[in-house]
Amino acid sequence: MNRTLTTSRHPTGNRRSLGYGSALVLLFLFLQGCVTATVDEMTFLEPTEGIGDSSVVILGRRHAPDYETEFDFIECIGDHIRRGDNSITVLHELEFINMMYPWFEPRTAPLRPQDIDRLLMQEPVANQFTDIKLEYMIWIDGSTIETNSSGSMTCGVGPGGAGCFGFGTWGNASDYEATIWDFTDQTEVGRISANTSGQSYMPAVVVPIPIIAPVQGTACDSLGDQLLDYLSATR
C-alpha cells in the first residue's frame, strides 16, 4: 500500500463560546507555529487480527557518526501507540537494550532482519526473546535539526522591573524513517517515513511570547498514527 499524506497546522482561532479552560487551550493552539508534515507508507502483511499477547519494541538507530535518533522521540511514539490501543504491549526501549546487552548497542545491533537468526544462536538471547514474546521490532532512523535562525532580542533589568525587546525566528526539520521487522518470519514488512518542518517565532515587547512549531511532536504523531494503523486490530 502506498499512501502520501500532507497535513498542516495553522494558528487559527475558534469562534465558539468556550469556558476558561478551553480558552487556554485555544490560546496554546494559537501560539503554535505552522508545521508541514509528509508521511509515506509502504507496508505488507498487516496483522489484521492484531498482535494478541505478543509484544513490540521500538528502537532508535544510533550508529551514524553525526546524529542519533533521540530517546525521547522513541518514547513519544511508544506512548502514542499505547494511548491509541492499550492492548498492544510496547516494550520500553532502554529496558530492552539493557535486557539484551550487549547485542543492541550501536556496534552490535542487527542491521538486517537476517541477522536476528545469528543472534538466536546464543541460547540465553533466544530464551529472552521467547520470554518477552516479541513479534515486531521497529527501527526508527532520523533526527530533528535546526535549519535556520535569525533575529535579535535585548533584555534588561532596572530598578523599575525587567523586560525584553526584539524578535527571533528559527526553523526546525524532522526526518524519520520507521522500518518494521516481523521477528518471527525475520523479514522486513514495512517502511514508513515522516518529514516535518516548521518555523517558530519569538516576538518580545517587554514579555517574550514564544510561538513554537511542534515539529518533532508532529513527526511523532504522524509516525505513531501510521504504526498504530498497522499494528492495531481495532483501527
Binding site: P65, A109, L111, R118, Q122
Partner: peptide
C-alpha cells in the same frame, strides 16, 4: 564458546 560472528557489525558501526 560460540559467539555469533555475523551478529557483530564490528568496525562498520561508525566507531572511529
Amino acid at each position: 564458546t560460540e559467539v555469533p560472528a555475523a551478529a557483530l557489525n564490528g568496525d562498520s558501526s561508525g566507531t572511529p
